[in-house]
């Protein structure tokens, strides 16, 4: 029983972590809570749903379409709603982000209708493997492995390539980086693209795990992933992953051991957020941000 909960929590946590990376990268660079990120995740899930279930394309192609589509949406959001506000007060960009999130959710209602749709899981992902008392499905094992591979790849991009160097440089000092000849807007766009692609992948795996898609499916995972990013230390990619996994464990284990608390499941993340903000606002692995006077 415990092993099953363990794998379950690891999978949920890995998904939170993948979404959290998008939040943490954008916040690290622009100091902006990209409220629309959870909705990019939702779009990714919808795209794969339409490609594979509605139009019967093979899964590989469907996943590719979903990633490209969600990435394009992420880039558009940055271009239209955030770039004009680069010089504006931070809260203006935040309100714009809230507007975009609201827009994408309701646009999804308009285009895809508000009805939840069932996702048909491919049978090979669901065939249980029985090890003694533990029943495991390949999907449950795949999610953490894929997440691990993706994060390793991302870390390589951020720490070993030139665009990654530019990203880290922007997060320290955007003006100086611009003076050094880096085209800042392109690097920011790349950040949005990477974050959106990861969110789309998380959306696809989410749609397979909880086999349905609906327009507001991104709201709570989005909030929770942001909380995971804050918990792990905003700006830190490994931190986002650690925060996500911790949050996944808190949610799954508390309900597994105290079933009475299941009604409060969605509140845990917010309680966790408030606690971490009060005790250690920089999160587990975050850098100290000093208040400049």
């Amino acid at each position: 029983m415990f092993v099953q909960h363990f794998i379950n929590a690891l999978g949920l946590g890995a998904l939170y972590g993948l979404i959290a990376i998008g939040y943490t990268m954008v916040y690290g660079i622009l100091r902006l809570i990209n409220f629309a990120h959870g909705d990019i995740f939702m779009l990714g899930a919808y795209f794969v749903f339409f490609a594979t279930i509605q139009y019967k394309l093979p899964w590989g192609l469907g996943v590719a379409i979903a990633i490209v589509g969600a990435t394009a949406c992420g880039l558009l959001v940055d271009r239209i709603a955030y770039r004009p506000l680069r010089g504006a007060p931070r809260i203006s960009a935040l309100i714009s982000a809230i507007g975009v999130s609201f827009f994408l959710e309701n646009l999804a209602v308009v285009i895809f209708t508000g009805m939840p749709r069932a996702v048909v899981q491919p049978p090979w992902l669901m065939k249980p493997v029985i090890l003694g008392e533990v029943r495991l499905i390949p999907l449950g094992l795949m999610v953490p492995v894929i997440a691990f591979v993706l994060v390793s790849g991302l870390l390589w991009v951020v720490y070993k390539t030139k665009p990654g160097l530019a990203m880290r440089s922007i997060s320290h000092d955007i003006e100086t980086t611009r003076l050094l000849g880096v085209s800042v807007d392109k690097i920011i766009a790349l950040t949005f693209a990477l974050g959106s692609a990861l969110a789309a992948l998380a959306g696809i795996m989410w749609a397979l795990r909880y086999p349905r898609v609906e327009p507001f499916m991104g709201v709570f995972p989005g909030f929770k992933a942001f909380i995971a990013a804050v918990f792990g230390g905003i700006g830190s990619i490994p931190g986002a992953m650690v925060g996500g996994v911790i949050l996944g464990f808190v949610e799954i284990m508390s309900v597994a051991f105290f079933p009475k608390l299941s009604g409060y499941k969605d509140a845990f993340a917010f309680v966790l957020l408030i606690v971490i903000l009060l005790i250690k606002p920089t999160g587990l692995m975050g850098e100290r941000m000093e208040e400049k006077i």
Partner: peptide
Amino acid sequence: GVPGMRMVLFSVLLIAVIIFRR
């Protein structure tokens, strides 16, 4: 009628106000 359209227009307005007339 298109359900959800009202909120789409509403959010477009919010974004437009914040971008063009903060």
